[in-house]
Design a protein around this nucleic acid. Structure first.
Lengths: 163, 163
DNA sequence: TAGACGTAGA
DNA sequence: TCTACGTCTA
């Protein structure tokens, strides 16, 4: 029962290639791709500035992420749309959302992991899609009527294609 | 990202020895010790009879399990003491509780995994304690005032000692 | 202490 | 759909 304790950092992870697949979010942690168990946006704080390291897309709930050839529209975090016992709220420019905004400003790479339904219909599986840059973000009204952040990320050219 | 898909079954797991440690409950699944992500009691159904395969002890909540040299007093499942938004209820002789009762009747071995607080204070770690037999069980009033099952399990002699 | 894009099985 | 002895960070 040994775990690889790779320090969390921005950019490529040694030994991980585009298209690598994983069955559980816990595996993403073990290999160093994404360290937060349940959050979709992972980040580090460098000299007081939060910078995103990775995002994990999921197809559950109202997270209406869009995957195009080289573009991802990623929904920000917060607002408690998940827990049905709590009322939805406007998302705030804090934590992971702030980190993604900072990554845009500072032009830092973000690892993108795509979560899909698993073949057996139980849970999901995760595919490493490569490095992206945040191109822009905006605020829009979500299904609940509350404000939701949307982040447009563009895939950095020169990476192996996603089959 | 490969997982060992050992079929769930009763008794010893090849390659696993008393004292083996694991950092996450997800690892217990990978190695074949315990397949349920969040439940403490795992079981199979053989010819219509539920039989326990393994239990995982945890020190959280009100699960007042007792670990002695060769005896475990294990608290049954159910009653929703965990989710604070729901009221506590009497535990029922169903699912995992029923499986443990059946394992007593049929004298089937049960794997015991002990969960402890981790050295870094974050989460727990898990130690395989070996094979046990259910010796008896009873119903008592828990902290909430509701009925809680208690199972007494005795360690089968001849196994390596727990350090 | 509570929040967060978790998981599998009944 | 809901439950279940989850797990980490802020």
């Amino acid at each position: 029962g040994k775990h690889v304790n790779t320090p969390n950092r921005i950019g490529q992870v040694p030994g991980i290639e585009v298209g690598d697949e994983f069955q559980y979010k816990a595996e993403l942690r073990v290999v160093g791709l994404h360290f937060r168990t349940m959050s979709g946006i992972d980040y580090v704080e460098v000299e007081g500035v939060k910078l995103a390291t990775s995002i994990v897309s999921s197809e559950r709930y109202d997270f209406d992420d869009k995957f195009d050839a080289d573009v991802v529209i990623y929904t920000g975090e917060g607002g408690n749309v998940i827990n049905k016992e709590k009322k939805a709220e406007d998302q705030k420019m804090i934590k992971g959302n702030l980190a993604l905004a900072n990554s845009m400003r500072h032009k830092r790479e973000v690892r993108v992991i795509r979560g899909d339904e698993r073949w057996d219909g139980k849970g999901k599986h995760y595919v490493y899609a490569g490095l992206y840059l945040v191109d822009k973000y905006w605020l829009e009204k979500g299904v609940s009527g509350k404000s939701v952040y949307k982040f447009k990320l563009c895939r950095i050219p020169g990476q192996p294609p996603l089959t």
